[in-house]
Design a binder for these strands. Structure first.
Lengths: 191, 191
DNA sequence: CTGCTATGTTGACGCGGACAACATGAGGAA
DNA sequence: TTCCTCATGTTGTCCGCGTCAACATAGCAG
C-alpha cells in the first residue's frame, strides 16, 4: 500500500487518492465488461480496497457512475474543443467519441442516472454542449453557471440533435461509422 | 387463481397466459417506479405467482425487459403508421411516444440490452423504422425479414436521426416538448 | 502527547438473479 | 377410463451486491 502517485502532489491519506483510482477502475470495468459489471464491490476489488471503502468517496453506486459519466463529458468536451471552429469537424469528433468510448457514451446518455440528482454531472454535460454552442451559434456564452439549457441556441440544439441521433445509431451498431459520417457530411452545416 | 381472461381464447395452463401478465406487470412497474424497480421477483409478485415462475417464460431478467421493449417498438410503430403519409406528423408521433412512454422509450433506446442477443427485439425495432421508411423514402420495402438496416434508405436515417435526437433531449427533460416540436417543424421535411 | 477527524475495514442484513428439485395439472396414448 | 408425459408453477437454496453500523487507523491540531 501507500504507493505514491507518480505526481506526488498531495497523497492525502492511506491510499493516496482513492477517488481517482475508483473512477479509473470503474471506467476500465465499464469498457471491458459493460455497465452491468460495474459494481461497487468489483470496483473496490480492482482498486485493491475493501468493499466499503468506496462509500467514503461516493454515497452510492449511482453517484460513482455519475462521476464516471461526468468525466466522460469532460473528455467529449475536450474532443469538441480540439475540433476548433469547424462545425463539421465537431460532428466527426462527436461520432468518434461515441465509437471510441461506446460504453461510456451509452452510460452518459442512457439516462439510467437522473441528472437532477447529480448537479456535477448536469453541469459537465452542459459544458460539453456549450463547446458546441460556441461554434454553432457563433457567440460565446458567459453567465448561468449550470443546468440551464436555455443558454444554448436553437441552431446548436438542432446540430446536436442530428449528430447525436447518428451517434446513437452507430453506438447501437445499426449503422457504420462511415455511413454516419457521410450522411452527416451531406447534411452537415446546412440549415 | 385460474381467473379466466376476459376473452377466454385459450387459457393455456394453470394461470391463463402468464407471459402476458408478466409483460403487463413489468410495463406497469417500469412506468410507475422506473427501470431499476423492474425485478423478476417484483414482477412475479405483482402477477401473483412465485418468484421463479417467470423463468418458464423468460430465461433471464434481460429477456423479460427485451420483451417489454419489443412491445414498445410495436406501439411506436402503430403510432407512426397512424400518422399516415405525413412525415411531419410522424415526427410529432415519435416525440409524443417519447413523452407518453418515457420510461419505456428509455428502455428501448437505452442500450442496456444488446439487440444482438434478442432477435425479436431487433426485428421489432427494425419494423418500427420501416414504418418511417415507407414514407421518408417513398417506397415500400419487402424482403429481408430482419436485422438489416441496409434496407432502410438514407433519407429515412437522416429523418430518424434528427427526430430521435430531439426526442432524446425531451425524454432527458432538457427540452420542452413544444420547443422540440417547433424546432422539428422548422427543420422537418426539408432536406 | 492527546485527542479529533478523515479514511479504510469488518461484519451483517435484505434483496434479487439464477439454478435444482419437486409438485401439479392438461392432454394424448393405451 | 387409466396412465404417462411434459409444460407449467412452487419451494428451497446459493451467491453477489448495495447499504448500514461498528470498529480500526492514520495524519493533523492543540
Amino acid at each position: 500500500m501507500k504507493l505514491a502517485v507518480s505526481t506526488s502532489e498531495k497523497a492525502p491519506y492511506h491510499h493516496g487518492d482513492l477517488r481517482r483510482s475508483l473512477l479509473d477502475a470503474a471506467l476500465g470495468i465499464l469498457h471491458r465488461d459493460g455497465i452491468g459489471a460495474v459494481s461497487l464491490r468489483e470496483v473496490a476489488r480492482v482498486a485493491g480496497v475493501s468493499h466499503n471503502a468506496p462509500y467514503r468517496h461516493f454515497p452510492s453506486r449511482d453517484a460513482l457512475l455519475a462521476g464516471v459519466a461526468a468525466e466522460g463529458f469532460g473528455r467529449l468536451r475536450a474532443r469538441l474543443e480540439a475540433a476548433g471552429d469547424d462545425l463539421a469537424a465537431m460532428g466527426e469528433a462527436y461520432l468518434a467519441f461515441a465509437v471510441a468510448e461506446r460504453p461510456c457514451f451509452l452510460l452518459m446518455f442512457g439516462s439510467s442516472l437522473c441528472k437532477a440528482n447529480f448537479p456535477d454531472l448536469a453541469s459537465a454535460a452542459l459544458e460539453a454542449l456549450r463547446a458546441l454552442d460556441r461554434v454553432a451559434s457563433g457567440r460565446a456564452v458567459s453567465g448561468g453557471d449550470a443546468c440551464e439549457i436555455r443558454t444554448i441556441g436553437p441552431a446548436t440544439l438542432r446540430a446536436w440533435a442530428i449528430v447525436h441521433g447518428f451517434a446513437h445509431l452507430v453506438a447501437d451498431g445499426q449503422l457504420s461509422l462511415e455511413a454516419a459520417s457521410r450522411a452527416l457530411a451531406a447534411d452537415g452545416t446546412a440549415p
